Amino acid sequence: MTKNLDDRKYKIIQELIKTEDENLILDLENRLAQDQEVTSPDKIWDMVIKPMRKDVSVDELAKEQDYKPLGRDYFFSLTQELSIEEDIDELLAQL
């Protein structure tokens, strides 16, 4: 947090300590409770995560994501550039 924001918070706290206005306190309590509801992990999860479809095919996903497969020659040229020297069993053991 920035110093300015901390200063503002402390000023608000000081004013709250001084106040005798119960309606103000109730209003602030309600507002804070509403903010907590919106930022609760369950609410955030529901806002961000979309439910999965019951039926989806690989072809539909490929179309939606504009998937373009790598050509065989291009793929093997990329693997040559990596110049992996370890044995395949050694690499698999590292996983």
Rank of each mutant, 00 (worst) to 15 (best):
K18R: 06
R31S: 14
M52T: 02
E22S: 02
I44T: 09
S77K: 14
T39Q: 13
E29W: 03
L70W: 12
I25G: 00
L28C: 01
R31M: 13
K9D: 10
G71N: 15
L91K: 00
P51G: 00
I12M: 13
I17P: 00
L28E: 00
Y74Q: 14
W45C: 04
V58G: 07
D55K: 06
Q80N: 13
K54I: 01
L78Q: 14
Y67I: 11
D59E: 12
F76Q: 11
V48P: 02
V38S: 10
T39V: 10
D46K: 09
Q34Y: 13
Q65P: 00
M1K: 11
Q94G: 04
V58H: 05
E22T: 02
A62K: 12
D21F: 01
V38M: 10
D59H: 04
D42W: 04
E20S: 04
M52E: 01
K63Q: 09
R8P: 08
D7A: 15
I44C: 07
V48Y: 05
E86F: 03
A62D: 06
A33V: 06
Q94K: 11
L70C: 10
I17H: 07
R72H: 13
L78H: 06
D46M: 04
Q94S: 08
E81H: 07
D42K: 10
M1G: 11
R31G: 14
P41V: 09
V56F: 00
D87T: 04
R72A: 12
L78Y: 05
T39E: 13
N4W: 03
V38Q: 11
L28M: 04
Q65A: 03
V48T: 08
Q94L: 08
E60Q: 10
E22P: 01
R8S: 15
M47V: 01
A93D: 13
P51N: 00
D35R: 14
L70S: 13
E60A: 07
L24F: 00
Y74A: 15
E20P: 01
M47E: 07
V58C: 07
K3V: 08
E60L: 05
I49S: 04
F76V: 10
I49G: 02
W45K: 07
M52I: 00
I12H: 09
M1W: 11
A62S: 11
S57D: 03
E37W: 05
S40D: 09
I84Q: 09
N23S: 03
D46A: 08
K43S: 13
E29M: 06
M1I: 11
D7N: 15
M1A: 13
E20Y: 02
D7E: 15
L82S: 03
I88E: 09
A33T: 09
K63I: 08
N4R: 15
E22W: 00
M1H: 11
L28V: 01
I84T: 07
F75K: 08
K11P: 04
I13G: 04
F76N: 12
L95T: 02
A62H: 04
R8G: 14
P69M: 15
D7L: 15
N4F: 11
D89E: 14
Y74K: 14
L26M: 03
K63E: 10
L24C: 00
V48W: 03
K43Y: 06
L32K: 10
E64H: 01
I12V: 14
V38L: 12
E15W: 07
P51I: 00
S77L: 09
